[in-house]
């Protein structure tokens, strides 16, 4: 593949990107090819070292923030016509409410995940506090009723133990959900990119 073929493919892979971003990407990869040629490589080899342009384009797109990516992919090719605007306004009670519901639903499901994490943390802290309270409450009982004091001691230590184990469980779960969030974001980005490539 020649340099211009590579850049042409990269350009079509980045189709729809803001001009500034597009120009900067093309300049960067063009420069990288030139540098390699200058250091003694043939044009063919220099281009080959960069990998295939589709992958390069995909990586650039994946690195964009989600709003930019959406704007790029859903940009209209022609301006709105009067009829489209009229229909859009008339239909707004329908599409607006449906759209909002969909967004709210997705958001709720996601928030629900984190609510589960928050609840587990709360329970864990509550058990820990209960353990401490049980432990401390045993001291005044020592004088009046020894078996009761012993019982409170035991219960307190048990709760504390459960809380410590729970702490690590909660921590692991929080980390897992955080990683999952990043994965989901990446997935959404890939879906948008794939959709765009299919359309062309």
């Amino acid at each position: 593949m020649t340099k211009s073929e590579f850049l042409e493919k990269l350009k079509s892979g980045l189709h729809g990107l803001p001009d500034k971003e597009l120009k900067s990407s093309l300049e960067y990869y063009g420069e990288m090819i030139d540098e390699r040629i200058e250091s003694g490589l043939s044009e063919e080899d220099a281009v080959a070292q960069l990998g295939d342009p589709e992958t390069v384009a995909r990586e650039i797109l994946l690195d964009l923030p989600l709003p930019t990516l959406i704007k790029q992919n859903y940009k209209r090719k022609s301006p709105w016509t009067a009829w489209e605007i009229v229909l859009l306004v008339l239909g707004s009670p329908l599409w607006l409410s449906l759209g909002l519901t969909a967004v709210a639903l997705v958001f709720t499901l996601y928030a629900l995940l984190w609510v589960v994490v928050a609840v587990l943390w709360t329970v864990d802290i509550a058990v820990g506090v209960a353990g401490l309270a049980g432990f401390l409450s045993a001291f005044p009982l020592l004088l009046s009723s020894f078996p009761n004091a012993l019982f409170n001691f035991g219960l307190g230590i048990l709760c504390a133990g459960v809380a410590v184990v729970g702490f690590f469980g909660c921590l692991a779960l929080t980390k897992l959900f955080y990683k999952l969030s990043i994965r989901i974001l990446k997935q959404i980005k890939s879906m948008i990119i794939r959709r765009n490539q299919r359309d062309e």
């Binding site: 900067s24 960067y28 990586e59 650039i60």
Partner: peptide, 11 residues
């Protein structure tokens, strides 16, 4: 570090 890793870092 490859070209495609460096690019987003520079940006």
């Amino acid at each position: 570090v490859s070209e495609s890793t460096l690019y987003p870092i520079l940006r």
